[in-house]
Amino acid sequence: KWTIEEKELFEQGLAKFGRRWTKISKLIGSRTVLQVKSYARQY
């Protein structure tokens, strides 16, 4: 389950980097690239 903080970081990353999942993953820190991709599908 994603925390509110992780969701906010995901949204910031999406706005800043677009669909560059590796960069978003590094920004969040606690999620892998695969987790970020998977979350993006449901987002």
Score class of each variant (00 low, 15 high):
Trp21Tyr: 10
Gln42Trp: 09
Lys26Met: 05
Thr3Val: 03
Leu27Glu: 08
Gly29Val: 11
Gly18Val: 07
Lys1Met: 14
Gln42Ser: 14
Arg31His: 02
Arg31Tyr: 04
Val36Gln: 02
Glu11Pro: 06
Ser38Tyr: 08
Lys37Cys: 06
Thr3Met: 10
Lys1Asp: 15
Trp2Gln: 05
Ser30Thr: 13
Glu5Gly: 01
Gly13Ala: 09
Val36Ala: 02
Gln12Phe: 03
Leu34Ile: 10
Arg20Val: 13
Gln35Val: 01
Thr22Lys: 14
Lys7Ser: 07
Glu5Leu: 01
Leu14Ala: 09
Ala15Met: 12
Lys26Thr: 11
Ala15Pro: 00
Gly13Pro: 07
Gln12Met: 08
Glu11Gln: 08
Arg20Asn: 15
Lys7Gly: 05
Glu11Ala: 08
Thr22Tyr: 12
Ile24Val: 08
Arg31Trp: 06
Arg19Lys: 11
Ile28Asn: 00
Ser30Phe: 03
Arg19Gly: 09
Ala40Lys: 01
Ser38Thr: 14
Glu11Thr: 12
Trp21Glu: 04
Leu9Ala: 11
Leu34Phe: 11
Ser30Tyr: 02
Gly18Cys: 04
Gln12Leu: 07
Trp2Ala: 04
Thr22Pro: 11
Thr22Ile: 05
Glu5Arg: 10
Glu11Met: 06
Leu34Cys: 14
Gln35Gly: 05
Ser25Pro: 10
Ser30Pro: 00
Glu8Thr: 12
Leu9Val: 04
Glu5Ile: 05
Ile28Pro: 02
Leu9Cys: 00
Ala15Phe: 09
Ile28Met: 10
Thr3Pro: 00
Gly29Phe: 12
Arg19Tyr: 11
Ile4Trp: 05
Ala40Asp: 02
Lys16Arg: 13
Thr32Phe: 04
Gln12Glu: 14
Arg31Gln: 03
Ser38His: 07
Ile28Arg: 00
Thr32Met: 05
Trp21Cys: 06
Leu9Tyr: 04
Phe17Ser: 02
Ala15Ser: 11
Leu9Ser: 08
Trp21Arg: 00
Gln42Cys: 10
Ser30Asp: 02
Thr32Asp: 11
Tyr39Thr: 02
Arg41Pro: 02
Gln12Thr: 12
Glu8Ile: 09
Lys23Trp: 05
Ile28Asp: 00
Gln12Ser: 09
Gly13Lys: 15
Trp21Phe: 01
Gln42Arg: 07
Ala15Arg: 06
Val33Gln: 06
Ile24Phe: 04
Glu8Phe: 01
Val36Pro: 00
Glu8His: 09
Gly18Trp: 15
Ser25Glu: 05
Leu14Arg: 06
Trp2Met: 04
Arg20Lys: 14
Lys7Ile: 04
Leu14Gly: 01
Ser30Ala: 04
Leu9Gly: 05
Trp2Glu: 07
Val33Pro: 15
Gly13Gln: 06
Gly13His: 04
Glu5Met: 08
Phe10Tyr: 04
Ser30Ile: 05
Ile4Asn: 11
Arg20Tyr: 12
Lys16Leu: 08
Ile24Asn: 01
Lys37Ala: 12
Lys23Arg: 09
Trp2Val: 02
Arg31Ile: 00
Lys26Asp: 09
Gly13Glu: 00
Arg19Gln: 14
Glu8Asp: 12
Ile24Leu: 09
Thr22Gly: 12
Glu6Leu: 15
Ala15Lys: 10
Gly13Tyr: 04
Leu14Glu: 00
Thr22Leu: 10
Thr22Val: 09
Tyr39Gly: 01
Ala15Gly: 10
Ile28Cys: 00
Lys26Val: 03
Glu6Met: 15
Lys26Leu: 04
Arg19Ala: 14
Leu9His: 07
Ile28Trp: 02
Ala40Trp: 11
Lys16Asp: 05
Trp21Pro: 04
Gln35Thr: 02
Arg20Gln: 14
Arg31Met: 05
Glu8Pro: 05
Glu5Gln: 11
Gln42Asn: 14
Tyr43Trp: 14
Thr3Cys: 07
Tyr39Phe: 10
Ser25Ile: 15
Gln12Arg: 08
Gln35Ser: 05
Glu8Asn: 13
Gln42Tyr: 06
Phe10Leu: 07
Ala15Asn: 05
Leu34Pro: 15
Leu27Gln: 05
Gln35Ile: 02
Lys26Ser: 07
Gln35Tyr: 01
Ile4Val: 08
Gly18Glu: 03
Lys16His: 03
Glu6Gln: 10
Tyr43Gly: 10
Trp2Phe: 07
Phe10Glu: 05
Lys16Val: 05
Thr22Gln: 14
Ile4Asp: 13
Trp21Thr: 00
Val36Ser: 01
Gln12His: 08
Leu9Pro: 05
Leu34Arg: 12
Gln35Asp: 09
Ile24Arg: 01
Arg41Trp: 07
Trp21Asn: 01
Tyr39Glu: 02
Thr3Asn: 06
Thr22Met: 10
Lys37Asn: 03
Leu27Tyr: 08
Ser25Ala: 15
Arg20Met: 14
Trp2Leu: 04
Ser30Asn: 03
Phe17Arg: 02
Glu5Cys: 01
Thr3Ser: 08
Ile4Leu: 11
Glu8Cys: 06
Glu5Asp: 09
Lys1Phe: 13
Glu8Lys: 15
Arg41Cys: 09
Ile4His: 05
Phe10Ile: 03
Gln12Pro: 04
Ser38Pro: 01
Lys37Ser: 07
Leu27Ser: 06
Lys37Glu: 14
Leu27Thr: 05
Gly29Asp: 01
Arg31Cys: 01
Ser38Trp: 07
Glu11Tyr: 04
Arg20Asp: 15
Ile4Ala: 11
Val33Asn: 04
Val33Arg: 13
Ile24Ser: 03
Ala15Ile: 13
Arg20Ile: 11
Phe10Asn: 05
Tyr43Leu: 12
Trp2Asn: 09
Ser30Gly: 04
Arg41Met: 15
Leu9Asn: 12
Thr3Trp: 13
Gly29Thr: 07
Gly18His: 05
Lys37Met: 13
Ala40Pro: 00
Ile28Lys: 00
Lys16Glu: 08
Thr32Gln: 00
Lys23Ile: 11
Thr3Ala: 03
Tyr43Ser: 13
Phe17Val: 03
Ala15His: 10
Lys23Leu: 09
Leu27Phe: 11
Lys23Val: 07
Glu6Trp: 15
Tyr43Ala: 13
Gly29Leu: 12
Phe17Asp: 01
Trp21Gly: 01
Tyr39Ala: 05
Leu14Val: 12
Lys23Met: 06
Lys1Thr: 12
Ala40His: 09
Tyr39Ile: 08
Lys16Tyr: 04
Lys1Ser: 13
Ile4Pro: 06
